[in-house]
Design a protein around this nucleic acid. Structure first.
Lengths: 203, 203, 203, 203
DNA sequence: CATGAATGAGCCTTCATTCAT
DNA sequence: CATGAATGAAGGCTCATTCAT
């Protein structure tokens, strides 16, 4: 086959690069989630990926940048799942919140567990200021999405929407500490947790 | 004063040892809380304590044992505060839970912040099996106390007490991620969070 | 020379790695021999090798593994020398033992002094069970070779071959404690020591 | 009892001191023998003695001085046993050497095993010059005793008495590497080893 | 006599990172 | 693209030793 022709049939440039980068991201997320960011070494990640440690630096300039990328990818996937759920929802604000919560936990406790869990198990206090800002910005996006959903709720006058939202987020996040695959699906748990906070707060 | 009586006022043996050990505990807790267990080095702790790194090992045989001791002391203080609050409470189960939650957050977000926060910010997944068992045992004690309080509540039939309790614990624990000294006191926050879950769930 | 033939002369893969690893082995052996295993620090070894301490771990995963490798290499060299000497020997069992003893001391007191001496100057009592097993296994190989040579000797009835062998091994090993380059060569010493035990024991 | 009288009945001054010092010596010897000089820590020794580490320094100014004292005591006991055996011996030089060798191994492999074994298992190469001198001086005393015994033997002309003696000493010392309590007593082994070297060498 | 407490140097090891090839 | 090799700092921890009490 002539060389010039092959360029037409190959996937777009950097496709291979992006594919390996994505795989690296997932593996790094798993390591971070299983061992903690500090305890997970670049060697661990490289070993799981079956490459040499130095090679990681071709895809990411530093360990911190890996962490940021994991956060961002986690947020991306959560948001995608939430938006997909909302797209199928009615206009009822409680149903919308319920669906969003279910989607959130499906990401967090399901297939994307590692990528998403890093978002809540990493307390960024210890990191450098720049890193901290990036991590918090990523989380902020999910927070904002829920803020909007809560804003639409017909809560009773006097109920602090901000505290109410934090209560819900706490319930959802904490599942990471106790959930084990069992009788209830992540989605069911998400709906029930919303229900706990629901009727009393209603107008 | 007769000499025989003095034995009552004499400080117990190893008083100096215990005092420094306690101080070390508090400082270690602060370091763990600020930087994370892995990122906090024994040298950091020693520097804050104004002693040489080796000296820590006179008080604790290892870094892990320090972590365990911090957990245990944190649990001890939380429980003491909760029990004190319950002693002043009426028999009303909702009031009792409300007071306990307030006490819990007063510990967690107040003076004992560092000691107590380690309990929830440390995800023991990455540690050795023995260490993990000890850390989880410490947490279990607080969990059990709340389990008892929830058992006394007149919840509506069909509400899972175990999920309900996890919802509350999640709300409380998550305050650690967002609380900053401000208009609401930790105690007030604790009561409000209980209220969010309250009336709808009642019988 | 045709290219196809060059595969024979090309250095095997990882040639550089192996070369430096071997050099490290020799230097470590010297340090162990001069200062004792415990007293010889990885820093010492690194300094002699003109590398940083951490670099050693690229070649050996631990200090203990270095010790094991030194033992194994020492045994390998001793055996090679002994077999070479036996290959040139007649069938006379006394001559064979004499040649083997000479070869043994030529290794132990000569060029391979450091590598080989570790074998007898390291009393493995203090090490972990696994390490001890590996060290003893290495020694066993040399022991077995001599056991075979002794089995062929026409010793008088009633002479315990096992004690007789230990007597010879003791004489040979102890040279490490007193030998200094001087008038007698290691080989001569080996032959004389065998002679001391020889004629009286004969059939 | 009046205080003044008690001074008459108590053991000579420093008797208690000496007794504890001796016990310390024995315990240190055991630790050195079991773990090696470097690996045996002052803390280990103190623990076995049921005192605090600092207290050792009341009896010995340093770890090295402990080693020297162990060596000296080991040599003292070996020599005492040898002299006692010689006192009961005839004038026959072979019998005298045989008895001395038996006595030597009875010390080395028997009750005084720890104290005496340190003498041969410690290769002083690694120590400071002064320490080395003291250790070698202690060994020299035993060496000299055997040198005298060998000088009296009617060896064949042409046999190097010095090499012959080193051969014997090697056989004896090496028992430390293989002896285990079993069918043969240390004394029997000593006599047999001398026999191995005997008749052929005779005039 | 003996202790409790501390010291400071040093140990083995691990790590994120770099860079010539 | 990826590797092999090295770096240098830092990690947890142990040690012989000291000294006021």
């Amino acid at each position: 086959m002539p060389k010039s022709a092959s360029t037409l049939s190959v996937p777009p440039p950097r496709a291979k690069f992006d594919k390996r980068r994505d795989k690296l991201l997932v593996i790094a997320a798993r390591c971070f989630n299983e061992q903690g960011y500090d305890a997970a070494s670049m060697r661990d990640i490289a070993r799981e990926m079956a490459i040499l440690p130095g090679t990681i630096y071709y895809y990411f300039p530093s360990k911190e940048s890996l962490l940021v990328a994991v956060h961002q990818e986690g947020v991306r996937r959560i948001l995608a799942k939430i938006e997909a759920a909302l797209a199928k929802s009615s206009a009822d604000p409680w149903e919308r919140l319920s669906n969003a919560s279910a989607a959130y936990l499906e990401s967090m406790l399901g297939v994307d567990r590692d990528l998403c869990a890093v978002i809540i198990s990493e307390f960024p206090r210890r990191h450098s200021k720049d890193l901290r800002a990036e991590l918090l910005a990523a989380r902020q996006i999910v927070d904002d999405r829920f803020r909007n959903l809560v804003a639409d709720l017909p809560l009773r006058r006097g109920v602090s929407r901000s505290l109410w939202r934090l209560a819900l987020m706490g319930q959802l996040a904490w599942t990471h500490a106790w959930y084990q695959k069992g009788k209830q699906t992540p989605g069911e748990i998400g709906r029930r947790l919303v229900d706990f906070l629901r009727r009393d707060s209603e107008n």
